[in-house]
Design a protein around this nucleic acid. Structure first.
Lengths: 328, 328
DNA sequence: ATGAAAGCGCTAACAC
DNA sequence: GTGTTAGCGCTTTCAT
């Protein structure tokens, strides 16, 4: 039975419950003392009136901000086009909904951490999630942000990290190729300055060297088209290559596309693996052997940490799990 | 040269510019009179101080809300898992950033439009974007939302529509198949109650009938696995089928997967087409013939319409463009 | 064209 | 435990 006109305010609830606004506030916000009796009357009144706290008002007085900003750093604004970013944003937006918060998406030009300052000073910013970050950027995180920032990727003393065990995943993929008989395994890498790429490359090097196999690295940038280019380069430089490890699923699909176009059988002549397990990796032909990462789970955990504001461990590592399919 | 401590407020700017807070407000918000001189001094002061309006405060006094809610209706919360939803959320989050707003993501159980009421009454909600909506739901949109709501899909008198010309796209795909010699073209459909699916099916029927070809419809639900199931059903019922039109790219990839698994050549024996042009349609093997839709552009336009609050045409139709690739 | 003043709805000291 | 009170930072009449 809502009163027509304006939505009910805390004042209305307090009046209906026969208590002061302060008491109503304590009950609704769940902070501070209130007798069971008052508690019950206030809750009942709130329910009956269909009361919804005005979060702008709350944010104003508490200075807590009204949005969670996802900051993706990279050399070009096109880093935001990555479907991976959309998955993170989508997951965060789901977490935010019940808190009455929203998610905004910003690109931070690599090497220009000044933007972080601006965000830290913006009173509307309730928290920050860093995606694809670098050590330089982590060093530039203003101290005021402590407890309101998390990183999907590497972290720092100030910034808790929610990360995938890229090294372990890559190692599992390479070992799988070895186990299935591949002996000349090349890798298409990502930008060297990205730590996640670095860890994958190191893991590849380690496994390959331990097995006494040759190291064959070709640069890429996570895209399908870099995979296409890299595929030719690999076979031009080392024609006897029998497996190619892509740094991402898109890269791997690019590799496969070029290989088949050039008459090379996948996985017959060359096995190809990806990394990430994007939703469609399972339905491509051949289905992609890759490593799967709980992106939504990670983003959810990071967003929850930022919103809840409770202390979190400095590093939470999520497993990267091999998904053997047809391509390698 | 920011003062240490708290970020500057409008009061600080006004003082620095030697005007009253009211005048500073008029200049910053761009509303109301102000002499060029005052205008200049205020802007300069704001720049110098690195002033950022506190949007919570503004939202509080104007009652404009602090977040854009994306409402996806469907029978299960899993509708939010669709990468398509993530693309919409990502695009909206980009649009919101400069406005100081955020995006939240809600699932609305099909047939329970009461949730809309609640959202409309929540003062924190600045605007609504409906995704995957139905006529029943559009009818339930509260009048107070006028001007603050848009639909990606069908619209109503109250809700402007930003939609793809599904019919045109599907017709283009089917005609393409016809042009390339296919004469027994089946279609895997989506849920009948979704208007976008309905329009595609009608377009298929029309083109096929006009060409004097048989109508072959099999139900699906947009997923890859429904494509797998449907592929077998099609060939069981009509073994001479030489083309299958998928209602989505995922469906098409499922169809292809099953077909190849069953030893059917694609596109040799059966051409397969998708719909949507997801990022990876270009790199699968065979690359997917599909119709491409400017999802990000549509979401951007819808979000902009909601945020700007300016009147928009009741319907904006975006073209669905055939992308002929290898699969059909 | 500008300033003074009154709130928007809420929380948090602080007194009772 | 509960009420009183003083703002949070901004916009917006209403005088001037």
């Amino acid at each position: 039975m809502t009163t027509a006109g304006r939505p009910p305010t805390l004042e209305d609830v307090a009046r209906a419950a026969g208590v002061s606004r302060a008491t109503a506030s304590r009950v609704i916000a769940g902070t501070g003392y209130a007798s069971p009796a008052a508690r019950g009357r206030v809750s009942a009144a709130a329910d009956r009136l269909g009361y919804l706290p005005n979060l702008a008002a709350r944010a104003l007085v508490r200075g807590t901000g009204v949005r969670l900003v996802i900051v993706v750093s990279g050399t070009a604004v096109s880093v935001l086009d990555d479907p991976y970013v959309d998955r993170v944003v989508g997951a965060a937006a789901r977490v935010c909904a019940p808190y009455g918060l929203g998610v905004a998406l910003h690109w931070l030009p690599a090497g220009e951490p000044a933007g972080l300052r601006r965000l830290a000073e913006d009173r509307g910013v309730g928290g920050l999630m860093l995606v694809n970050t670098t050590e330089a950027l982590l060093d530039a995180v203003p101290r005021e942000l402590r407890g309101r920032v998390a990183s999907i990727g590497i972290g720092s003393a100030l910034v808790p990290s929610f990360d995938v065990d890229n090294g372990g995943g890559t190692a599992a993929v390479v070992r799988h190729l070895y186990r299935t008989g591949r002996r000349r395994i090349a890798m298409v890498t990502g930008p060297r300055w990205l730590s996640c790429s670095g860890r994958s490359v190191r893991a590849y090097r380690r496994v390959v060297r331990d097995a006494g196999l040759p190291v064959r690295l070709v640069p890429g940038d996570f895209t399908a088209s870099s995979g296409r280019t890299a595929a030719r380069e690999v076979l031009a430089r080392w024609p006897d290559t029998d497996a190619i490890v892509g740094i991402s699923d898109a890269t791997a699909l690019g590799v496969i596309d070029r290989l088949r176009g050039d008459g090379v059988q996948v996985p017959g002549d060359v096995a190809v693996t990806g990394f990430d397990d994007i939703p469609l990796a399972a339905v491509t032909t051949p289905a992609l052997t890759t490593a799967t990462h709980p992106v939504a789970e990670i983003a959810t955990a990071a967003a929850t940490a930022v919103l809840a504001g409770r202390p979190v461990p400095p590093t939470t590592v999520y497993p990267s799990r091999l998904v053997p399919r047809a391509s390698g």
